[in-house]
């Protein structure tokens, strides 16, 4: 089944092969093989605890930030195995950015400094800081709302604005892939709609992988959808197929809301 989507979308941006992940001795991913198509939105759905977060955290090597964790298998970005010894996870994360479930702007920084935080944390002096800030905030659909208050603390914004600020912060690094772990679950419907629109815009330039609990959201924003269950990839296909004619009974039960 995963070959199918590979044929549909010519170019594969990231690919996991037989990816296994552990917390301590608890194996939470049992060998996931999945291809993320370039410049499309890939949704990951599945019941709570099935390993969605763990999976996308393996894609930018954030899983290993948690103590006592382990990963086996390969993940390719373009043709490079990111779990190779010679790969520095710090450099990888510049290419594969991540947006978290709860907006987490840096509390001691202004809106402007939050956008520039990634560059500054890497010790890069932006060539034209103002242009970088404006560009990232514009792409994150936040510029008009904050252009006159760039020096206010990032935390002074609403939850939805904070989340778009976190997206802007990631975009400022000009990554190739953006991972989003339930980016709207802490937001109200209006803020959610804005972020969903934004994701649609982003895919013209970026490859997006989004974890969501919200079936309608997956159906609205994604091009392909992967259904995870108990640490396994059960089905992976074009989104409309997953939601209209899934092949697997478990998938059907889940997307029709019979469990999960």
């Amino acid at each position: 089944m995963e070959n199918e989507s590979k044929n549909i979308f010519q170019s594969v941006k990231m690919r996991s092969e037989n990816l296994k992940a552990w917390f301590g001795t608890h194996e939470v991913l049992h060998g996931i093989t999945l291809s993320v198509p370039e410049k499309y939105v890939t949704a990951i759905i599945g019941p709570s605890g099935c390993g969605k977060s763990t999976f996308i955290r393996c894609l930018n090597r954030m899983h290993e930030v948690v103590p006592a964790t382990k990963v086996l298998g390969s993940v390719y970005l373009d043709a490079i195995d990111i779990y190779k010894n010679s790969i520095n996870p710090v450099n990888l994360r510049k290419k594969v950015g991540m947006v978290f479930q709860k907006p987490n702007p840096f509390p001691t920084m202004s809106i402007r400094d939050n956008v520039l935080a990634g560059l500054r944390l890497q010790g890069i002096k932006p060539y034209d800081a103002h242009a970088t800030v404006e560009k990232a905030l514009t792409q994150a659909a936040l510029w008009d709302e904050v252009k006159d208050i760039l020096n206010r603390p990032g935390l002074s914004l609403s939850g939805g604005q904070q989340q778009r600020l976190c997206i802007a912060r990631t975009l400022a690094l000009e990554p190739e892939v953006i991972l989003m772990d339930e980016p709207c679950s802490a937001l109200d419907p209006i803020a959610t709609a804005k972020i969903e629109d934004l994701i649609q815009e982003l895919k013209s330039k970026y490859t997006v992988v989004i974890v969501t609990h919200n079936m309608q959201q997956a159906a609205r924003v994604s091009d392909v959808t992967a259904f995870f269950y108990l640490g396994e990839l059960i089905e992976f296909d074009r989104t409309e197929k997953i939601f209209t004619t899934p092949k697997n009974r478990k998938t059907e039960e889940y997307v029709t809301g019979r469990f999960g």
């Binding site: 450099n91 990634g118 944390l121 890497q122 690094l173």
Partner: peptide
Amino acid sequence: PPSLKEGAYALGANKLAT
């Protein structure tokens, strides 16, 4: 909060910078 540190790591920061 660990979420702040994770935010920094996800932006390509190393441990000292974080």
